[in-house]
Design a protein around this nucleic acid. Structure first.
Lengths: 162, 162
DNA sequence: GGCGATAATGAGAATCGATTTCAATATGGG
DNA sequence: CCCATATTGAAATCGATTCTCATTATCGCC
């Protein structure tokens, strides 16, 4: 099973790395080892990754990696559509792998910071209809729900007990 | 009509300024002329105001106003619930008057930057239901629709014509 | 009306994430 | 292998915001 089929982490990493190569070629950019490694590390990560985290991982392999290169690489990945940039109000941009994923929005726990994802067609449809009513055509949107996850609420209940 | 009834800009400014006084007293803070003028100017403005804009207005009256004071005053207004802070992705925080206004979300034109407001109960209800399904209780949310307003779309059509 | 404790202020320094600069290095086509 | 050119690391810079600190304003009290 492990080395098999098409959609494991290895497959995703390989496919996305190849896609990056295509993008670079099309833009007349060169292909570099550093960039490729940073991209591979990113594609192998799950969740919402900050530059700081990514830099940490990259430096575990080679201490000389500069944060500027990580920033530059992430910018390329976003431009090429292989990553999405997100910002959840803590001032840091976070990136998520875009390949093989469909549109979704986020739920962020204000207690522990955990980030959950959801997609709701009805909300999407209502957004489009609201925009239409105001004469707008929507290009993109941003929807984040901030609250308490069940675990944090349970924790709070436990602490409140006398 | 101008000087009349209860809800004109004058009434809003006076009422909100008084509310700020109450808040300051409750917090054991002092009442200062600078702060009061900045707040009055803010309450008299419409739309989504940046610190830069507010500082410009304040300095028209007295060139010595410091931007630190404007930042500090806006922080107080937000804490007291008299202003809401919003951030539409251009890196600058914008403030809107909160008094006499109910919850709403925003539509932002990516062409001219105009900001429209809307409120949609169905979307709100669906958000709560999505959150519940994920075990979250929502404290607040952030919903912004980015797109083209009708004016900008018309402009684009005109320019595209051969 | 003046005192004294303390909050508010302005100016500039500091912060923080992100970007840019620039000299050194790597890449890839010919 | 060479050259033009893209990429890199380190440090400088950016822009919004916050902080520091010495000076000034406010307010309760006499």
């Amino acid at each position: 099973m492990r080395a098999g089929g098409g959609r494991g982490a290895r497959g995703r990493v390989a496919g996305s790395t190849a896609a990056l190569g295509t993008y670079l070629a099309r833009q007349g950019l060169k292909h570099s080892r550093r960039r490729e490694r940073i991209a591979e590390i990113f594609f192998g990560m799950v969740g919402h990754v900050s530059v700081e985290e990514l830099l940490g991982h990259a430096r575990r392999e080679d201490r000389r990696v500069s944060q500027a290169t990580v920033y530059r690489t992430m910018k390329l990945l976003v431009e090429s559509g292989l990553a999405n940039a997100r910002e959840f109000g803590d001032g840091q941009t976070r990136y998520e792998v875009a390949v093989g994923r469909s549109h979704h929005d986020h739920l962020i726990c204000t207690g522990c910071g955990i980030i959950a994802e959801f997609a709701d067609e009805q909300i999407e449809a209502l957004q489009a209809s609201v925009a239409r009513r105001h004469g707008f055509s929507v290009e993109r949107h941003r929807l984040e729900l901030y609250g308490r996850c069940s675990r944090c609420r349970a924790e709070a209940r436990r602490e409140a007990r006398p």
